[in-house]
């Protein structure tokens, strides 16, 4: 099978259409399962009672916000360096989902902060740098929106996305580098997690659901972008009809 064939937007379009249900349906199932485990199976926390359960939305969405930024910058860079249009389109498609997850993590975080910390918002390093991440997404989206020439929009977006990558490690390590109000990570690459297994299970199931959801939504948006940009091509007109 020739995979390079699918690097062309025209050939990728039908493939993406076929792939969407394969991600969307498992995503929905995992969301339901994860929320069930999170709200009915996982025990209450010894300190926070039930308020901690927002972690099941907050942590996966915060991770997705950061991962998707790296992914977006990666695709944008590939699209720029190798003049791969599909890759640039991918970056544009990811940006909105990433911004949504970042905003969701900020909102759920402040809803969690009120009952536990006693405040919706503080300007500590973790919260401030996450807010900057949201601004970077918004900058990327508005820059691309205000450039009419697609090829310039793709590459200008790539430069901005790459510059912004420096913020992601700052967000991740902020709780270690500075003393912040925000607690440290419960699940680390090295070392034992500091979260009870059923809680962790719920969090990981929802994380998987978020990944699958992102893939499905990005594919849907990618198809829209392909149709939009390949307007002159006859096949796109047919696909729209």
């Amino acid at each position: 099978m020739n995979w390079y064939k699918y690097a062309s937007p025209t050939n990728f379009y039908p493939l993406a259409g076929k792939m969407i249900p394969w991600f969307a349906i498992p995503s929905a199932i995992l969301f339901v399962l994860g929320l069930y485990v999170g709200f009915f199976v996982a025990p209450t926390d010894f300190q926070q009672g039930d308020a901690y359960r927002i972690i099941f939305i907050h942590v996966p969405s915060a991770w997705m916000g950061m991962f998707l930024y790296l992914l977006m910058a990666f695709y944008a860079a590939i699209g720029w360096a190798f003049n791969a249009r599909l890759s640039s389109m991918m970056a544009s498609a990811i940006s909105i989902t990433g911004a949504m997850f970042t905003a969701l993590s900020l909102v759920t975080g402040s809803l969690w902060g009120k009952p536990t910390w006693g405040t919706y918002w503080v300007w500590d390093a973790r919260l401030t740098s996450t807010l900057i991440l949201l601004f970077l997404y918004i900058g990327f989206i508005s820059l691309q929106a205000s450039i009419d020439d697609r090829s310039r929009a793709d590459r200008a977006g790539a430069v901005l996305a790459i510059v912004g990558v420096i913020n992601v490690p700052i967000i991740y390590f902020s709780v270690q580098w500075w003393n912040t109000l925000h607690q440290g990570a419960s699940i680390r690459l090295l070392g034992k997690p500091t979260i009870a297994p059923p809680m962790m299970a719920a969090m990981l199931i929802i994380l998987a659901a978020c990944w699958l959801y992102s893939i499905a939504v990005v594919l849907v948006r990618l198809r829209q972008i392909i149709v939009e940009r390949e307007q002159t091509a006859a096949w796109a007109a047919e696909a729209r009809a």
């Binding site: 926390d45 607690q183 500091t194």
Partner: peptide
């Protein structure tokens, strides 16, 4: 004029906590 609680990254059932 403001007191905030700083909780840690440990999440466990009450029995384990006790």
């Amino acid at each position: 004029d403001q007191v905030l609680a700083k909780h840690d990254e440990n999440y466990m059932p009450p029995e384990a906590g006790q």
